[in-house]
Write a protein that binds this DNA or RNA. Sequence first.
DNA 1: ATTATTGTATTATTCACTTAGTACAATAAT
DNA 2: ATTATTGTACTAAGTGAATAATACAATAAT
Lengths: 121, 121
Amino acid sequence: MDFDTSTPIYLQILQKIKRNIAAGKIAPGEKLGSVRDLSIEYGVNPNTVQRTMAALESEGLVYAERTSGRFVTDNEALVAGVRRSLIAGEIDAFLQSMQELGLTEKDVIARIVEHGPSKEN
Amino acid sequence: MDFDTSTPIYLQILQKIKRNIAAGKIAPGEKLGSVRDLSIEYGVNPNTVQRTMAALESEGLVYAERTSGRFVTDNEALVAGVRRSLIAGEIDAFLQSMQELGLTEKDVIARIVEHGPSKEN
DNA sequence: ATTATTGTATTATTCACTTAGTACAATAAT
DNA sequence: ATTATTGTACTAAGTGAATAATACAATAAT
């Protein structure tokens, strides 16, 4: 994984995992890699991953079991809420940004349309 | 101005000014506030503003004149290019993010459409 | 010529993030 | 019982960002 030097690594990992949970890429109840394994996977210090996990736990998105490992919450309502929150927040920020740069919502929609119909799922 | 603790302040100021230039809020050739004044306006150390300005200069967006102050470049083509680049980059990032969260471009457009017309909520 | 304003440079200090290394605690697996 | 794997805690060191406090350099205004 490639990190942006202008944002703390533990936050970048946090956001990545958070988005994966919100998107369902990591399902509720699913087990995460161990702190040690993830630190290797991300190429960072185990302490950094530990910090990420502490933050994710304080949000209630994951929980630790002493020696079994760490798991995504089973609270699907919470996950759904996080997803909605992420989407709403990003849309707001995006539209405001486009407006500041002089684009109306019509302009934005036109740009998205011509952006190229991507493959359907 | 309120800063995000997770990104260097000098970069946040950089992006804000850069966007203002791209949006034409600060016109080509227009004078910027002095380092000292801006540091007060933003509530940060003059050194921090100085660092921002050094970065903006390395991008060619502003230039300094010894005692007159600092000005936005007269190169309108450069400014226009920066604007296009910002817009294109943000649209790409936004659409990719929405796709990751499970929204198609149609979904996104629908959300944008229902976003604007309803100022009442 | 003097003054004020501007950009610029320098040194020191504090703080958060990151890494490194080590150790301990709990429990599933053997 | 022992071992391995997991989460967790701790100390030390290095780095970049931000602040604070000065000082110097250049020139427009007076």
